[in-house]
Design a protein around this nucleic acid. Structure first.
Lengths: 269, 269
DNA sequence: GCAGAAAATTGACTAATCGTCATTTTCTGA
DNA sequence: TCAGAAAATGACGATTAGTCAATTTTCTGC
């Protein structure tokens, strides 16, 4: 009896677990489906056009079910942003086979971010919008945790490059500076430039400025300032940019040109 | 008869102009009143809490009149952002009597921006939100023009500092670099850092990072990279930071400490 | 000061939208 | 097959953006 019970119990437990797993799987899958719908809406009609009603009518579920997945509209928005971060991670992944010195590797990350903002401008705006405390405040803990994990993963990638550069002597940090400061400097600079450039096409400060050139100039100056060798004056980093464009991100180049984005050539150097 | 008519005409014209001016004045004044209400709502209840109904019920006018001033909610938001830019301009103005070399002057602008984001965090979020094309698209031309003018004025200030540094030999630009690139590099870096730091307190990348230190470290690295003399290694820029805090922005320091913002000392070095 | 024209103001109203929850449907385990 | 649990539904209340016909105020010419 005990054994039987035990066996039964185990069986039940196991079965139940399987069931639960399957359910979880289905739930996750449906969540992605909903996020995809939201992404489509945002990408085609803009951030303002995203409404829960619209998501509901485009999917096979009811409003209540949608709200079963996302606690509120903001929660959905963060989910979209997180999916965007995963896309960015994918782009980072394409750099795995890219050979180059530390600064070139770091430039790889920056270019990946640039492509991300060009390919999915509305997605990028989501990532930005989600930095608004008013939105973050209403987001579920689960979603915020996911966001944090994704950001750690992205940051980690930059940390590794910096660490590696220190190890092979390209970069020497003065005692008062740390790896994370180098990452932060590069990250905030890239992010700021992308926001200013992408966000408002009408931003006057940028008129008469060549976006791609500015973007890389910033990076050159910054890492020269860190005395990260080789300096931009003693090495041709534009070759690396060309390689990144032609070897690593050629698919993205095609996508961008197909989407008929105005002068991608200028925008990307 | 002709003379009389003429005189009458002139008189009428003049009178009418006066009237119109007075009306414009009143309209402008009321517009500021409405923007102030919007600012209060945003600063106390967050960006999401800003509704036209709420603005209406807090002022002495009706909804229709409010819509007479602002074509839509987004238009009001841009108006708030523009008012924020004027506040920033005010903070820039406080630097007029501040003496220092070019880099110190530039740091002055950056610190002013930092204070702006600390003193009016929600206002700063407005400036950021307004970079969203979905919002800008719905804004009235008048408001957009105002925004552009304000941004030019702010940018001009930075340009002047760079130009002056070039003229007195502190800064030498290589042939392929221009003044506006230097401005853009400093501006985008400052902006990016403020967004990342201010926007999401929960942003993991910043945990364990001293905001103020990072902020200035970024600036040190960047302008060292431009070889803008004197370099951070050969000059104590922290003294200038102290002077800026104690002499130029002491009022802001007090305001911040009164508002009980957590560890402003750390946050501001 | 007055009549009529012009301009400004009003707030009720429509359409959208968020988020809820009582009811219905589906699933689960025996 | 069935009872109870879990999930899904969509009608509904509340809030909100934006409009516009009606009203009030201001202006104009005399």
């Amino acid at each position: 009896m005990i054994v039987k019970n035990h066996v039964t119990f185990v069986y039940k437990q196991s079965f139940s677990m399987e069931q639960t797993d399957k359910k979880q799987q289905l739930k996750l899958q449906r969540e992605l489906e909903l996020v995809d719908i939201a992404r489509d809406i945002i990408e085609s009609e803009g951030l303002n056009a995203l409404t829960m009603d619209k998501v509901t009518e485009r999917c096979d579920y009811s409003k209540g079910t949608v709200y079963n997945h996302f606690s509120c509209k903001e929660d959905l928005l963060v989910a979209v942003s997180n999916e965007g971060l995963k896309d960015l991670q994918q782009l980072f992944g394409k750099l795995n086979d890219f050979k180059g010195n530390g600064r070139e590797q770091m430039m790889g990350l920056q270019i990946a971010y640039l492509y991300f903002s060009k390919l999915y401008p509305s997605q990028f705006m989501c990532v930005l919008s989600v930095k608004n405390p008013a939105i973050l405040k209403r987001t579920s803990e689960k979603r915020k945790r996911e966001q944090i994990e994704l950001e750690i993963a992205l940051e980690q990638r930059a940390h590794e490059i910096v660490n590696s550069a220190i190890n092979n002597g390209e970069l020497q940090l003065s005692p008062e500076r740390e790896v994370k400061q180098v990452t932060f400097a590069n990250w905030s600079q890239t992010f700021g430039a992308l926001v200013l450039v992408n966000a408002a096409e009408s931003l006057v400060g940028l008129q008469g400025i060549d976006v791609g050139k500015e973007f890389f100039t910033n990076a050159f100056i910054l890492n020269d300032g860190l005395n990260w060798k080789p300096l931009s004056s003693e090495y041709d980093y534009f070759k690396a940019i060309e390689r990144l464009k032609k070897d690593v991100f050629f698919e993205e180049e095609i996508l961008i040109s197909e989407q008929n984005i105005p002068s991608p050539k200028t925008a990307l150097l």
